[in-house]
Design a protein around this nucleic acid. Structure first.
Lengths: 152, 152
DNA sequence: GGATTATAAATCGTATCCGATCTAATCGGA
DNA sequence: TCCGATTAGATCGGATACGATTTATAATCC
């Protein structure tokens, strides 16, 4: 990844790597959410998946994967776990037996409506920049994915 | 779509979650680096660890972990792999046998000096905002970790 | 000095990610 | 209509993350 133009001496400074800032910020978010999610028995990824599922009922694994930038190899085990916890329902679509439809159970919806991470907005220390950063990082992600897909 | 979503309700939009922007941007960086790192047989985390190790010779697992925000449970297997690839050396510190000292081999240093991710700066599409985003996200990370540690 | 405590790394079990592959179901062209 | 190609999920193996525990060494206290 790109670094600042200056690399005197021995190594490249980690602090100049945007990828490392993102990588470590992701770890930090996971740790910030941990105590909140432990209370309800969810992992970070399970929580994100549940939020995405709250967007719409009867999504397929594929469409959910497009939202989360993940595929069935990662999602299937997570979704089975969420079903096992009675937070979602999974069933094959009768109109196309290849697809699996996903919906929150009342328990799952109730859990999501608690706004579990609400207290974290302040912890980011971003103040009014919160929305700007969110948009900028999303744009960064989209640009990277587009560029990556482009030279396949 | 044949079926109409019965709930429509209150889902929280994933697009409003800063944590998801960071989470997915991290996935995107990993995928952008993948083809570059495959050429040299490194994984994303191994590469980040190697960059951190290029900063200084004779670091311990603990000090490396402070830079990477990781601990020995995660680092030890990665460092053993890097040693096995002859990119670093590991040895117990004679002055304190509890500690393991880490240094790049010439091959490891040579690999890092290639600036493998250089081509990705452009792919971020951030232009002159690159450095600003890098600093803002680092600050976000530090704030989150501080807040998380604070109410332990 | 010997026992207790603290520290550094390693180990172990669980849960992601991800490439590769597999299976089942659907589609499509001759 | 038939059969190969495509598609959607699921499965599998390797590599992180991470809490909890273990081992080995060092520091501290009485």
């Amino acid at each position: 990844m790109a670094r600042s133009p200056k690399s005197a001496g021995k190594g490249r400074k980690l602090s100049n790597f945007l990828c490392f800032a993102i990588y470590s910020a992701n770890l930090a978010f996971g740790r910030a959410y941990k105590p909140l999610l432990d209370k309800v028995g969810l992992t970070y990824t399970q929580y994100i998946a549940l939020v995405a599922l709250s967007d719409e009922d009867e999504q397929t694994v594929g469409t959910l994967g497009e939202k989360l930038f993940l595929e069935s190899n990662t999602l299937t085990p997570i979704l089975k776990k969420l079903e096992q916890m009675a937070l979602i329902k999974r069933h094959r679509d009768p109109a196309d037996e290849r697809q699996v439809r996903l919906s929150l159970t009342p328990a799952g919806r109730k859990l999501i409506e608690q706004d579990l991470g609400g207290s974290l907005r302040e912890a980011t220390g971003l103040g009014d920049d919160f929305a700007v950063v969110q948009k900028t990082v999303s744009r960064l992600r989209d640009n990277l994915l587009r560029a990556t897909k482009a030279d396949d």
